[in-house]
Structure formats: C-alpha cells, structure tokens
Simulated assay, not measured.
Amino acid sequence: MRKKNTVTKPSKVVRAVQLGSTDTGHVIGQSLRKLREAAGVTPKQMGARLKLALSAIVGIEKDGDVPVRLLRRYVEALGATLSIEAKFPTSQSTADQFHLPFETLGDGNQLVFPIFGDDTPSTKDLVLSIHPQYTNKIMEGTKTVELRRRFPLTAAPGTVVYIYSTSPIRALVARAEIADVTKLPISQIWRKYSKPAVIKRADFDSYFNGLAEGFALHFANVQPLPRPLALSELRDRFGFQPPQSFHYASPMLKKALRDEFSSVSY
C-alpha cells in the first residue's frame, strides 16, 4: 500500500532584533528576550531552567554579553538550537577564494558558511542542480563523475546528494552518495575525468573558463526516486528554490524524502 503523503507544517520563525548599531550585546539581549517571550516563558521560569538567579536572566537580556556556551544553553532551554553563520555576497570570486562549503540562500543573493551548530556541513544532505542530459546518464550509470567549479572538500564520503534535474524537467529525480571529492588543476581534470563525466571538450572549456582548478565529484549508489518531485510541489511543500549549483537540503525536505521514499535504501 502506498504511504499517504503528509504535509509537515513549517516551524514558527521568531524574528530577531535587527542589528542597527554597534551595541551588539544589547541587540543580542533583546533578541533573547523576544525569543523567551515568544516561547511563553517568564524570566523566573528561565532562571529555574538554567539554574541561574533572576537577576542573572535580567542581566543577560539587558546586556547580551554572554559566552557562546551560555548563549547555547539559553536557546536550548527554550527548545531551540543555536547556529551561527557567516554570510557573504554571492560572487564566484568569493566562493573560489575561500573554497568553503557554502550554502546558497533561496534568494541566491548570499553565500552562507555555518560556523557553529549541531547540523555541520559534513552531516548535511546536498541538492545538486544538473542538466537533464547529464542526469539521465547518471541514472543509467554511464556518468559516474560530476564536475563543479566549486564544491566543499569537507563533504565526507557517504554524503547524500539529491539530484535536481533542471529545465525542462525541473524536478528532483534521484539520490546518490558522494564517494570522493577531488580538487585538481583544470588540465588534469580533463585528462582524468572527461570520459566518466561524459562531457565534450567545448562544454568543458566553457564551463571552467577563467578557473585554474576545479572539482570532481565521484558518485556511488545512484538510485532514481520512486517518483520525481516536481518544482511546483517542492515549492508548495518545502519553500524550495532550485540551487544555482548546490545547496544544503532543508531538514523538512530531508525528512519527507526519507519518510515517503522508504523503499529507497538509506
């Protein structure tokens, strides 16, 4: 019997106080207070949860000058998790300069590098945008290497990749695993990986134009999804935006893919 699709309601977002001055501590304190109030927790109850005096809670929310370990405890006491990210403007020069496991935000205007949090880049599932002429070859098994201008070298072997087939298909079509990520000079990438990447020389030169080095992603355990997930469904259910190159899969999307497609071996 086919499992009935269920729609997971998105988590409530509490807007933090925007940083408009140099008084960073004050802004953090106000944000913590807003978060506590949104959770329906009084300062006295917060003190009990953290085993701190009421005056300490008032001080934290007034000054916000707290170490990360206390900031994390405060957020977790409200049932949330703390993450800290560095955001850069989207530009190829930025990505190529740092070679970091950036996540492209949905609006495509920022690159995000996670600094602190439980869901580190090495444990995140990825979504890759690939042209249909290549996604078909990946699912057929004739293409075992995907070439990229940038990619996180920190992606551990076994990292799950969901393949988004671009226009005109516009759907998630397959799941694979990263067996290895190799960074090499462009000339070596052509010599070693042009055949398993199933790419023509003109397309290769056009794609890597202006770069000295690139990345080769080695795929393993490629499996088509039981049914393609069209972009319209992805947007309606998960607020999904196709990545320009790649981005990290949202927790909601990961859970749905694992629950609904349990027939796919994980």
Rank of each mutant, 00 (worst) to 15 (best):
R2H: 11
S11V: 13
V14W: 14
R15M: 09
L19T: 10
T24A: 11
G25V: 07
H26Q: 14
H26Y: 13
G29L: 00
L35R: 04
V41E: 02
Q45K: 13
M46R: 01
G47V: 02
A48Q: 11
L50W: 04
K51A: 15
L54S: 04
L54F: 08
E61F: 02
D63Q: 13
P67N: 14
L71Y: 04
A80Q: 07
A80T: 03
S83P: 00
T94P: 02
T94M: 08
Q97N: 10
Q97S: 14
H99D: 09
L100N: 03
E103I: 05
G106V: 08
G106A: 15
P114A: 08
D118E: 15
D118N: 12
P121L: 11
P121A: 10
P121W: 09
S122D: 15
L128P: 02
I130K: 02
P132R: 08
T135N: 05
K137P: 01
K137I: 07
E140C: 06
K143Y: 12
E146M: 11
L147E: 01
R150H: 13
A155Q: 12
V160D: 02
P168C: 09
I169D: 06
A176V: 03
A179I: 08
L184H: 07
I186F: 06
I189S: 01
S194R: 07
K195H: 12
P196N: 12
D203M: 07
F204C: 04
Y207L: 07
F208M: 06
F208T: 03
L211G: 05
E213G: 04
G214E: 04
F215D: 02
A216M: 05
F219D: 00
A220L: 05
N221W: 01
A230Q: 07
S232I: 08
S232T: 13
R235D: 09
R235E: 15
D236E: 15
G239S: 13
P242K: 07
H247E: 11
Y248G: 01
A249L: 09
A249G: 03
L253F: 09
K255C: 10
K255R: 15
E260W: 12
S262E: 11
S263F: 04
V264Y: 01
V264N: 03
